[in-house]
Design a protein around this nucleic acid. Structure first.
Lengths: 200, 200
DNA sequence: CGGAAACTTGAGTTACGTCAACTACCGTGG
DNA sequence: CCACGGTAGTTGACGTAACTCAAGTTTCCG
């Protein structure tokens, strides 16, 4: 699914990991946010005229399709589902705000710590990893670099520092969080308190 | 209105300029987005448990208050208004996405050009400035620096370059856009196409 | 066994940050 | 009327975090 396309569908993610991103003409890429089970894809495309970003899967994903035309009908017939959609949109906004703070004002080390703490939180709160147990995050350093707004080389050096301090361990294809509290403290971040989460 | 507060109200902006921001413990500040007439304030606070950011006015603002408890009722009684709220949330997301791309991947000069082109667009599309006429943006360089994720000094030097190239003129307290097309081209950005905008 | 994708490391460069000083422009009050 | 203090903007010298380039491993997979 790429930017500019007019997309008639809305999707709910049932399983798997993906991400949303934008690119400049010369290829510079910025990952905007990650997509996990329970997330909605394509709301912007339904409400705005066209998609403003692209989406890519990181693992095999299964989706539940939803027709665009039915969105207004759904709002009329099921106000509580409409409310849930708003809830999801507001949560996305909260995440984007934090990412913005991170890229704009945190140092490379803090930023990296924040990203991993954030992904760990998301992984755990969607049940992708058991609560309490160390999460194994299926990201490459290239993904992280494009999320952090850093170069690949500098991202690597930053992660090596975190690994040297025993906060994480970097695996073949992904990252294992060892000391989540350490990461959160370094980043100066704690996961947001949420009201009850909608099913969808 | 500051972060962490539990805010029972939702506001619609009738007139004036403001902005949303977050700060780290040591005072580093990141401006997340600007608030103009027609925008909604406090949706996150209503849906999440508490406000995740703070809001500050840049000019005198007039607001229309809306009680939190009535949100669910509104969703039941007026689905089209509910849809409008979703529309606004999706538009906010689109703007945050673009800011993220900007801070993460654009150079200081491109970023500055983007910000001014963006504010010019917002000013014009809310009727704060006449369409076609040069918009006068009521921002200080400190605001811009905190939006761009740059230092105040470097922001100043960047703006002086834009002024030297006759793209903008910097006034006492704010900025006058001279060559909007030049700014957009430099930033590699054009305003998004929007579907019909809701009243609210 | 070869080739691609991911990760690592060092050396040199540059964009941006910090520090510090200075100007200009108010509005306030003696 | 001028003295003042505060906010906003400007500029130069110097330091450093992050980038680029380039050359490695290592791991996976066909």
């Amino acid at each position: 699914m790429t930017e500019g396309e007019r997309n008639a569908q809305l999707y709910t993610v049932l399983s798997g990991w993906g991400f949303r991103y934008k690119i400049l003409e010369d290829g510079r890429r910025q990952i905007l946010n990650y997509i996990l089970p329970g997330d909605l894809i394509g709301l912007q495309g339904n409400v705005m005229l066209e998609m403003q970003h692209s989406v890519e899967a990181m693992t095999r994903m299964s989706l539940c399709v939803f027709e665009r035309d039915r969105l207004m009908t759904l709002y009329e017939k099921h106000p509580s589902l409409a409310y849930d959609i708003t809830w999801l949109a507001a949560r996305e906004e909260t995440m984007l705000d934090e990412h913005l703070l991170s890229i704009g004002r945190r140092s490379a080390l803090e930023r990296a710590a924040y990203l991993l703490a954030f992904l760990d939180w998301r992984a755990k709160s969607t049940g992708a990893a058991a609560e309490g147990k160390a999460a194994n995050l299926p990201v490459t350093q290239q993904h992280c670099a494009d999320t952090l707004g850093l170069s690949l080389v500098h991202t690597n050096k930053t992660f090596r520092k975190l690994a040297g301090d025993r906060l994480i361990r970097w695996l073949d294809r992904g990252c294992e969080v060892i000391d989540i509290e350490g990461l959160r403290k370094l980043a100066g971040w704690t996961p947001p308190l949420e009201t009850k989460r909608p099913f969808l």
